[in-house]
Every structure is written in structure tokens, then in C-alpha cells.
Simulated scan of single mutants.
Amino acid sequence: MDEIKLAQHFYQMEMNDFYTYMEISKVIKKQDIREKIQKIALMEKKHAQFWGDFLKNRNAAVPEVSVNKTKLLFMKFLSKFMNPVIVISFFELGESGAIKQYYNFLKQTTLNPEERQRLKEIILDEIEHETFFARQINEKGVSNIRDFVLGMNDGLVEILGAVAGLSAVYLYNPIMVGISGLIVGFAGALSMGIGAFISVRSQRQVNQAQKEQMEIIFDVAPERAVEEYKEKLISSGVVKEIAEEIANKIGLNKEAISKLLIEETDENEVKSGLFTGFAYLFGVFFPVIPYFFAPNSYIALPFSIIFAGLALTIVATVISVLSGISIKKKIAEMVISAFTAAGIAYIFGSIMQSVFGIEI
């Protein structure tokens, strides 16, 4: 896509965001958040003006504004059942690819000094917007959506492979496949849940131990804490002279140094373990359900694949929206990898049946 078409695309995108945010802001009750969304909307309009000027300076047509009515209606519909800020935040995170596109445009396109400076400012604006929306997502607890779909994906893919392999062994006993899949899935959910519990708890214990050690260091040799912080800055790539300057400015600020040296975590280990386990277990049901209703595994397996494929499509779509990557590519990546694993597992099951002469 040449620079003119890209600029026209960016103009449309920014104007679309302007109208969308202004419309959704009307149903936001909290005044400070509503004003923040409206401010962002006006900034998007200002960004669109930059792209309009870019096109005019090159005697190119500024496209007519075409609002994505489907997206706007969908967002309005969701706003009736969810906090409008969450709805906007959810969709905005899916637009994070704009920052990369703008950066590539900045690096690859010939711009005059004024245009270059304005585009740099736009990129910083977009980063600020993304940070704001990401903060809203985290404050409202919606970041758990990503954790849930990833945990669900693990359970879905692993059990799809398991039931596919078992289908080749228990050709005429689908109930056995279904029960086995549930048992494996339940064990997997326990493993994932316990693993998450131990991971979060261990991190909390490590943090507590580090805090206690820091208390001792500050009491016995406070200058050691400053030196340790300086070394951490240097190891992270900060120039030695700058690291020394920063460390000296912070001085013996105990609270500041502790926060910078110790990685804090607000996660609750019990909640994390239960959430991860249930997410995994939820994914197990999609490939397993058909085996409790089909007369044999030949019929159950295709339905298992279809159900898993539909669930994977939903999971891939959510991940794509949250990550700002191509939905089509993510769906293809996840579905193909899952089905490949199922195919390999089925072949392995067939080999095991032949080797051990299982006839069930």
C-alpha cells in the first residue's frame, strides 16, 4: 500500500474513532471519565486533520468519512449490559497496531520537518491513549478475560488431542473416550490451578523475603541499597553515569528504592489458582461433549473437532482484539495447530491399537 492510500486509511480510522468515542461517551455517567473519553475523541479528530493536511499537501483526495456503523451499534449494544468504559477499552486495545503502523510510516516515508514532528506527537498521543485504556481494563478486572481465554485454550487443545487419540483406540465405545477425556481434563485443571497457586504464592513469599532483607540493609548499611539500585539500572542498559545520577538523586528514599528493586504483585494466589483451573476445565467440555451422545467415536470425533474449532475461533478473536493482531491469522494459527495436534494424536492412537491389538 503506497503512502497516499495509507494516509487515506489513517484519516478514515482516526475520524471513525472520533465519532465512535463521542457517541459512546454520551452514555458514560462518571463525569471525569466521560470528559477524558471526549478529550481523546477530539485528539483523534486532530490526528485525522494531520492526515487530511498530509493528503492536501500532495494534491491527493481526502476521503469521505465513513463511520463503521456495525462496530458502533455493537459497542452501543454492549454498553447497555457493560460499563461503556470497558467496552471502549476492550476495542481500543485491538487498535494498538496503529502505533506500529504510524512508526513504520515515520521511518519509511519522506516527510518535512513539521510533518515529522507532528507525527511523532501523534504516536506519543496514541501510546498515552493505549496506556489509559489498558489501565481501565486492569482497574475493572477485565484483564482476566485474556487469562481466561488462554487457560480455556490450553484445556481445549490438550483434550482435543487426547480424545482424538483415544477415538482411534475406543472406536465403538465413545463413552469411554468421553469419561477418559473428563478425567484427563480434571487432572489437567488441578495441575494448572495448583501450578498458578504455587507460582503466585512463591512470588509473594520471595517479595516478602526481599522486603525483610531490604529492611536489614537499610538498617545496617543504607548506602548498600543505593549501590544495589544503581547496579540494577546499569544491568538493565542504563549508562553508568546516568545510573549514578539517578541513584544519587533518589538517595536514601527507602520507600522509593524498595518499590524499584522489589517486584510487587497484587494477585491473590487462591483466586488465581481457581480462575486458572476453571478456565482450563471450561475448555475441556467442548471436545468431550459429543462422546456422551454419539453412537461411536467415528461420529463423535468430527463433532468434537467442530465444537473445538468454533470455541477456538472465539478464543482467537478475543485474543486478537486484545492484542491488536490479525484476527484471520490468529484463527488460522490456533485452529490449524489444534487440528494438527489432534491428527497426530489420532495416528498415534491408531498405532497403539495396532501394536497392542486393542479391540473395544
Rank of each mutant, 00 (worst) to 15 (best):
S167H: 09
E158H: 06
G161K: 02
L252H: 12
S235T: 15
E227Q: 14
V220T: 12
I217Y: 06
A247M: 08
I175G: 10
L182R: 07
I179G: 03
G181K: 00
V239R: 13
I175L: 11
K249Y: 11
A168Q: 01
K259C: 00
N248S: 14
I234W: 01
D219Y: 07
L190Q: 11
S235M: 15
K232I: 12
D219C: 03
G185M: 07
E227W: 07
G195Q: 07
Q203F: 12
I234V: 15
E245M: 13
S199F: 06
Y172G: 10
K230D: 05
S272N: 11
L166G: 04
N253P: 07
A243Q: 03
V226A: 13
E215A: 09
I250Q: 06
G193T: 07
L166Q: 05
L233G: 01
Y170I: 06
G195F: 08
G251K: 06
M214Q: 07
V220W: 03
P174T: 04
L190G: 14
Q210W: 11
V184N: 10
E223A: 11
E228Q: 14
A162P: 03
A187S: 15
E223W: 12
G188A: 08
Y229T: 07
M214T: 01
V200D: 02
A243R: 01
V238I: 15
A209D: 04
E223N: 13
S199A: 14
A164E: 06
N207M: 11
S191C: 08
S167T: 11
K254C: 00
I175Y: 12
T265D: 04
L233E: 03
I242P: 05
V169I: 15
I250C: 08
Y229W: 14
P174R: 02
E212N: 08
P174N: 05
L190K: 09
I217A: 01
V177L: 05
D219W: 01
R201L: 09
S167A: 12
V177F: 03
G195A: 08
P174A: 03
Y172M: 10
V177Q: 02
V226D: 11
L160K: 04
A187V: 10
E263D: 12
M214F: 15
A221V: 10
V270S: 09
V270E: 07
I257R: 02
A243L: 05
K240F: 10
A221S: 09
I159K: 01
Y229R: 09
Q205L: 12
L260M: 12
M192W: 04
K259V: 05
I257Y: 03
F218P: 01
V239K: 14
K211Q: 06
I216G: 00
D219F: 09
N253T: 08
L261D: 02
I234S: 01
A209T: 09
V220R: 10
N248K: 15
Q213V: 05
E158G: 04
E263A: 14
Y170W: 10
A221I: 14
S180R: 06
R204Q: 13
A196C: 00
P174M: 06
